[in-house]
């Protein structure tokens, strides 16, 4: 790859994640959700693997925590799903309940549904980057 493409790839990483974050946060108010955000963020990582190479990417980014991110995301989603049972509500009851007022931080609404979406985001991000990393490493080990 040329010097140019390496630089462009690196420069693109931050904007990609910015977009992912925006899609994530605006998810409840506008197009997009945790799933799309997770895919966008991992596409940014994938670009690094393609252009910069596996070794440098793994030094640059904490991809070795992909599995933990996936587990943590699943844990968040599970907690949001089952904790309402402790209060005697049906599973996956979201708070604030319909009719109650919601706190806003800009376009971000503080809802447990959004937290659930964050869990989905982390899981998708973890799984996608984890799979990318596994494939990249498997390729490197192959005798060519």
């Amino acid at each position: 790859m040329t010097i140019m493409s390496r630089h462009v790839a690196r420069l693109l990483l931050a904007p990609t994640w910015m977009v992912a974050l925006a899609v994530m946060i605006k998810g409840y108010a506008d197009t997009g959700d945790g799933f799309s955000a997770g895919i966008i963020a991992s596409l940014g990582v994938l670009l690094q693997y393609l252009v910069v190479g596996t070794r440098e990417t793994t030094q640059l980014l904490p991809v070795r925590y992909a599995r933990e991110a996936a587990q943590f995301g699943l844990l968040i989603a599970l907690l949001v799903t089952f904790i309402p049972v402790l209060w005697g509500d049906p599973i996956l009851t979201h708070y604030p309940r319909p009719g109650e007022s919601v706190t806003h931080l800009g376009t971000l609404e503080l809802l447990t549904a959004v937290l659930f979406d964050v869990g989905v985001f982390l899981l998708v991000l973890g799984v996608a980057t984890g799979v990318i990393d596994l494939i990249a490493r498997s390729r490197e080990r192959r005798p060519t």
Binding site: Y28, G34, L92, P98, F116, V120, L123
Partner: peptide, 25 residues
């Protein structure tokens, strides 16, 4: 009513949240 404007997201996280839970598992 579920405090959402994007219908797909609300379906994924709320109306059909249990399906999503199963899928991400």
């Amino acid at each position: 009513v579920a405090h959402g404007k994007d219908i797909v997201t609300v379906i994924l996280a709320d109306f059909r949240g249990l399906d999503t839970m199963g899928e991400i598992t």
